[in-house]
Design a protein around this nucleic acid. Structure first.
Length: 954
RNA sequence: GGGCGGUUAGCUCAGCUGGUUAGAGCGCCUGCCUUACAAGCAGGAUGUCGGGGGUUCGAGUCCCUCACUGCCCACCA
């Protein structure tokens, strides 16, 4: 292979190849260390499992980009980087998906099929389509360990889920009972509070008169859901409400409650502080079976619970004329009937927040039903603190650190007000609750193995509970179940080596759904598992992860939240197809910093595609020159210690484990080579610091700025004046080429966590060009550049800075004077000694970069250069010898503007320097700096004044 | 009703514990096909850092306040 890379970078030509290569060679597989082996420094992460039904969205892409950058970075730093991927069975979503599919096919419905056949269908679906999202992940090249991939319904995980359930039950932390839950009448299942959204809707507040049974008057109540009055069992008033004191204890006749052939029900007026005198009429109807507040009131007053709806939210009151009506139809009928009988006192507009199912969009009906709960605030039987208490302590005591920090507060707020967790779902797809009901005595048996005999009555007809577990139960156990936890209390080799995991990267939307559950369950179950050294595990090491990084939301270019209804959803795969994975990754990384949402703008991605192309072309330049060197008879080879040299070259390029550019410097090392190494060294520090603090944006920007703004803009340009293949075996050329290759190869490694595809391609191409086998199968398996690998020469960098500012100033002045770009001009230079020295040491920089034909450096005694042809800075005056074609008016305007700027600066400085307080209190270095700057500004001002005076009048 | 954030150049955002005269990318203007790259090169313009007050020698940076604007949580019928 030679340097024949296409002129423009075409990601589609290489990405698929490498994505496959990484997976097929299993490059990111980390074997389980033998039991008992001390674990090396590791970096373990668990991928937040996407739903099997899912397609990759921008949130996933951001999440995975961040995780992948960190994983690759840690891996290249020599740590054992384990990233465990997997998918979630996603109970409701998957069941809905398959039901829809059945409906589309016109085949049997779920209920037609029955439980067993239906779940079989879901498995079929999962096996056929469930890999879509992981396929997308493979395409993105995320460096997960695929051999560790899990599915939350895998046998091994299911066994662990059952074990966890049984143990919680045995510890008295799981109970079953009739409570008000959020009922989704469409899906016909209970939902947790978190699965319910509250939506603002315009509604009505109905005032309804309930007459006293003794005919002595009436109470008017206010309600937004009049249909539930069929289930009323009381009316509550505030005990301190003077208006109603006399009513307390009396009986009311419940309107419309008469069923066929009967008379209306009577209900009592009770006193309860729940009734708010300020709201509505101050009297509230009490419907314990259909409202959580009323449920509580009912418990306090021992009221009956009257369930008047079925699971489809249809009215079910035998003998009532409303029987069988849908709740909303019933509402209309009831309101009309009340109006007809004169009981409807008023209807007022009322803004209300309606609970809506996140899953189906149906209006939630609070419903009394029998469900299973985890008691999160209860102490387990046999001692210990509650789940919530442990989870609070884990974060409070710093065993789990949350970034950005302000989420810690949110976490505490939530954890302090946490309610019991409803874990049962009336679905068929999921982990079926391991409980059996005895037909004979109704005893509930919770067991690891399917029981055959009732332990209480010896009955043999046992039916397994039909409910399944909330999906977050199984995913909440993942940090230890993926490493083989089986409840036996044994430390598996994987747990020993990899638990607790190091970092969890996730979105805030599942902080409570998932993160909090993992902390509760991890702290609870892992406390029983001994440490690798056999000692007792404490909370510090029971936590599921040491750190949580909560990433921001990816919005559209207008900062709108992406949503299907708005139609502004950006499909990452589309963008990746257009611009390449690396460019999209870089776009996300360049904006990813803790707590800041990302506005995804394609224009930005276009910019990073250009960056990829820039890198590509830098490589072409390199390869072209290596090709020339070979033609010119230079020897290109690897040295003994896995380094390669060119001719008698000096710079070890590469990698494997050793890298020692620093030691390899010689007297002949070109100035600009030392400079680029010094810069590399500094950038390494910047990147390490940035990534250690989740400043992906800073890291990305640092490497971007380095590669484009320094390596390409300056170093490559300067290199051009060294490379001379016309002379046989020129040492300078050899040294330059060695340094160039060395620096480039290091830059590729620096870039590779951010742009894995491009860097992999070019890295292999580089070795192909020098006809040597690469030192590793992948750039991802080499080591990350460290600051110490390179020389850092401050004096060199300072001199280079001087050269750069001089070159820039001359270029600007040339432009101002209208010198044609190709024309070379003589230059005269006065100014400070260090500037003169920098230029006389390397006049070729100025000559090449600013197209200067001859340089005259004025002696120390000579007067400083002045005039409109002089480019000035505090450090130098550089005169371009050229007959200017300058517009005097324009030049005057420019100078006047410049003067004003200097004047403003001087005034600002003068204010401070003339301020006694400042002089007395400000640190010396600040004062010094300000003085120096003021002096410089004054000098510039004088120079500008001189130039202005020298302008012809006109 | 509680809690958390945001407001800096036309756009998207940096600006770390207050310290010299506020930055980047994109866009915009001017000139260049300079033997890696026009997805490029060189040069340039652009901000009363949301309003007001305060603390300080010194304030995008800290405090108060107002305005606008997101987001999360919440059982007020």
């Amino acid at each position: 292979m030679s340097s024949e890379l296409p002129k423009a970078y075409e990601p589609s030509l290489i990405e698929e190849k490498w994505a496959r290569y990484w997976v097929e060679l299993g490059l990111f597989h980390v074997p389980t260390p033998p039991s008992g082996e001390a674990s090396a420094k590791h970096f373990v992460q668990l991928l937040p499992p996407p739903n099997v039904t899912g397609r990759l969205h921008m949130g996933h892409m951001l999440n995975q980009t961040e995780m992948d950058i960190l994983t690759r970075w840690h891996r290249m730093r020599g740590e054992t980087a384990v990233w465990v991927p997997g998918t979630d069975h996603a109970g409701i979503a998957t069941q809905m998906m398959v039901e829809r599919q059945l409906a589309a096919e016109g085949g049997p419905t779920r209920t037609d099929l029955g439980r067993e056949a239906f779940t079989e269908r879901v498995w079929q679906w999962k096996n056929q389509y469930g890999g879509a999202i992981t396929e997308q992940m493979r395409r993105l090249g995320v460096s997960v360990d695929w051999s560790r991939e899990y599915f939350t319904m895998d046998d091994r995980l299911s066994v662990a889920v059952r074990e966890a359930f049984v143990r919680l039950w045995e510890q008295g932390l799981i109970y079953r009972g009739a409570y008000i839950v959020n009922w989704d009448p469409q899906l016909q299942t209970a939902l947790s509070d978190l699965e319910v959204d509250n939506e603002e809707r315009a509604g009505k507040l109905y005032h309804i008169r309930y007459p006293l049974a003794d005919g002595s008057g009436a109470i008017t109540i206010a309600t937004t859901r009049p249909e539930t009055m069929l289930g009323d069992v009381a009316v509550a008033v505030n005990p301190d409400d003077e208006r109603y004191k006399s009513f307390i204890g009396k009986a009311l006749v419940l309107p419309l409650s008469a069923v066929a052939g009967g008379s209306p029900r009577e209900i009592p007026v009770i006193a309860d502080a729940w009734a708010n005198p300020e709201f509505g009429t101050g009297a509230v109807k009490v419907t314990p079976a259909h409202d959580p507040n009323d449920f509580a009131v009912g418990q306090r007053h021992n009221l009956p619970q009257l369930n008047i709806m079925d699971e489809l939210a249809r009215i079910r009151v035998e003998g009532s004329s409303y029987d069988g009506l849908d709740r909303f139809a019933a509402r209309e009928r009831i309101v009309a009937d009340l109006e007809a009988m004169g009981a409807l006192v008023a209807v007022k507009d009322h803004a209300l927040t309606l609970p809506v199912s996140q899953r189906s969009g149906a209006v939630i009906e609070p419903r009394l039903s029998i469900q299973w709960f985890i008691a999160v605030n209860k102490e387990p039987v046999g001692g210990g603190t509650s789940l919530a208490a442990k989870a609070l302590a884990a974060v409070r005591d710093g065993h789990v650190r949350i970034t950005p920090e302000n989420y810690t507060k949110t976490y505490f707020e939530w954890m302090n007000n946490i309610h019991d967790w409803c874990i049962s779902r009336q679905l068929w797809w999921g982990h079926r609750i391991p409980a059996w009901h005895c037909d004979a005595c109704h005893e509930i048996l919770v067991a690891r193995e399917t029981p055959t005999v009732c332990t209480r009555c010896g009955g043999t007809v046992l039916r397994q509970e039909t409910d399944v577990l909330d999906m977050w139960v199984s995913s909440g156990l993942l940090p230890f179940t993926v490493f083989g936890w089986d409840g036996s209390g044994k430390l598996t080799p994987n747990l020993s080596a990899f638990y607790p995991t190091d970092l969890l990267v996730t979105g805030f939307d599942i902080l409570f759904f998932w993160v909090a559950k993992m902390i509760m369950l991890g702290c609870h179950f892992m406390l029983d598992v001994p440490m690798p050294d056999g000692s007792v595990r404490t909370l510090e090491d029971a936590v599921p992860f040491r750190e949580v990084y909560i990433h921001a939301l990816v919005r559209d270019a207008e900062r709108q939240k992406m949503s299907k209804t708005k139609g502004n959803v950006i499909d990452p795969i589309d963008i990746v197809t257009n611009y390449g994975t690396d460019a999209v990754r870089f776009t996300l990384a360049s904006q990813a910093s803790p707590g800041t949402d990302i506005a995804f703008n394609e224009a930005r991605t276009e910019g990073y595609r250009a960056f990829a192309n820039k890198i590509w072309n830098a490589a072409r330049f390199l390869f072209m020159n290596i090709g020339r060197a070979k033609e010119a008879g230079y020897e290109v080879q690897l040295a003994k210690d896995a380094l390669f040299v060119i001719q008698k070259g000096i710079f070890p390029a590469v990698t494997g484990k050793v890298f020692a550019a620093k030691e390899a410097l010689t007297d002949g090392t070109p100035f600009e080579a030392i400079w680029i190494f010094s810069r590399l060294s500094a950038v390494c520090l910047e990147i390490d610091h940035a990534l250690a603090t989740y400043r992906f944006d800073e890291a990305a920007n640092a490497v971007y700025q380095f590669f484009w703004g320094e390596f390409c803009d300056w170093y490559l340009e300067l290199v051009k004046l060294r490379l001379d293949f016309s002379i046989e075996l020129n040492t300078t050329t050899a040294l330059t080429l060695s340094a160039l290759v060395t620096a480039f190869e290091a830059a590729l490694r620096l870039l590779s966590p951010f742009m894995p595809f491009l860097t992999e391609e070019l890295w292999h191409a580089l070795y192909a060009v020098i006809e040597q086998p690469p030192p590793a199968k992948s750039i991802a398996l080499t080591c990350y550049p460290r600051a110490n690998d390179f020389p850092a020469d401050a004096a060199n960098v300072a001199a280079m800075n001087t050269q750069q500012s001089l070159i820039t100033a001359v270029r600007a002045k040339r432009k101002e004077l209208g010198v044609p770009e190709k024309e070379t001009v003589p230059l005269r230079l006065s100014g400070m000694d260090h500037t003169k020295r920098a230029v006389s040491n390397h006049p070729e920089f100025l000559t090449r970069m600013a197209r200067v034909s001859g340089i005259t450096i004025l002696e120390a005694g000579e007067p400083a250069l002045r005039g409109p042809n002089v480019a000035v800075s505090p450090e130098f005056e550089a005169e371009i010898v050229y007959e200017r074609k300058v517009d005097v008016a324009v030049e005057r305007e420019r100078l006047v503007k410049e003067l004003a700027k200097y004047e403003k600066g001087l005034q600002a400085a003068g204010r401070q320097l003339g301020n006694e307080g400042f002089m007395a209190k400000a640190p010396a270095q600040i004062v010094e700096g300000l003085k120096r700057q003021a002096a410089e500004t004054r000098a510039l001002k004088e120079k500008a004044e001189a130039a202005l005076a020298a302008l012809p009048k006109g």
